[in-house]
């Protein structure tokens, strides 16, 4: 090859070809197939797939209370999860950018839950909710520990929120630390000399300056919590009686338990539209709040 000039087409094929091939096979084609199957009664097994028009969507909107209760569950979970993980992540970052002796070790610890996958984390917490909390209840006498964690709809919901915060705050902490360390020391010192209180500095200087990180933090947390599946599966399996079933799990069950692949893809497409709309709105809104130092 040396010396001979490669054609432009040859270069394009060599460099972009492999990536484009796998991307087409695993993302583009399935996405298009999903659009097609959402208008069919495909059951995943038989070769007979017939076109049913908008029947699947009609069924979802008029006759599928389980889907909408899983949707409502996911919305509540997302709102709480996004706010709490970002608040906790931000405050961990804020306090761990102070000159503390154990700062690096503390950062290591707060991030650690994040490297463990949601499935294993959920199983660890299943033990803690079932046995650990019971023992803590005996020791402390606090009724908080003796609630039926994982056993009913309300506490099951909060259990998932709690583990989600434990898992995700560390990641957001890292993002906020990166952003906070870019806030110029001069600006902060000037504010201090002018007599601004800690809260004033935080609210009026630091938060506006790290808005780009807030955009990212909200974006990530929305996408994690909306798509949450592993924690859901390993903590409650959606139970009791589907009361803690997320949309991701509802789609999964529709396709792989009920073998209604057509209906499942219709739900999946709807899910995509909702995620896309929310993401675009969120990025627009927070981007408009970003300022230059």
């Amino acid at each position: 090859m040396r010396g001979s000039k490669l054609s432009q087409f040859g270069q394009q094929a060599f460099f972009v070809g492999p990536a484009l091939l796998f991307f087409t096979l695993i993302t583009i084609i399935p996405f298009l197939m999903g659009m097609y199957y959402s208008f069919t009664d495909w059951n995943g097994v038989s070769g007979n797939v017939s076109w049913v028009g908008i029947d699947n969507f009609k069924a979802i909107f008029t006759n599928d209370p389980d889907f909408w209760s899983s949707f409502w569950f996911t919305v509540r979970f997302t709102v709480l999860g996004v706010v709490l993980t970002n608040v906790v992540g931000f405050f961990l970052a804020y306090l761990l950018t102070k000159p503390l002796k154990t700062r690096n070790m503390l950062r290591t610890i707060f991030f650690m839950p994040n490297v463990i996958g949601g499935l294993l984390l959920g199983f660890i917490w299943q033990f803690i909710f079932i046995k650990g909390f019971a023992t803590m209840g005996d020791v402390t006498g606090w009724s908080f520990f003796n609630l039926p964690w994982l056993g009913d709809a309300t506490t099951g919901f909060w259990a998932i929120v709690l583990v989600f915060i434990w898992q995700s705050s560390g990641y957001l902490m890292v993002i906020y630390i990166a952003s906070l360390s870019n806030v110029s020391k001069e600006v902060l010192e000037a504010a201090e000399i002018d007599g601004a209180s800690r809260m004033q500095v935080l609210r009026n200087i630091i938060v506006p300056l790290i808005m780009p990180a807030v955009t990212i933090g909200l974006f990530l947390a929305i996408s994690w919590s909306f798509k949450m599946f592993d924690l859901n599966l390993s903590l409650t399996k959606g139970g009791p009686f589907k009361s803690t079933e997320s949309v991701a799990m509802n789609i999964y069950n529709e396709a792989f338990l009920n073998n209604r692949y057509g209906l499942g893809t219709a739900k999946a497409l709807l899910f995509f539209l909702i995620v896309a709309i929310i993401t675009v709105i969120q990025v627009r809104v927070t981007k408009s709040k970003e300022v230059e130092a």
């Binding site: 996405f31 999903g34 599946f229 692949y261």
Partner: peptide, 20 residues
Amino acid sequence: LFVAAMVVPFQTIMIPILKV
């Protein structure tokens, strides 16, 4: 296209991926 694909949830395409 690549950027747009980053917004697509895995659950949206997982069923057809199995078919592929």
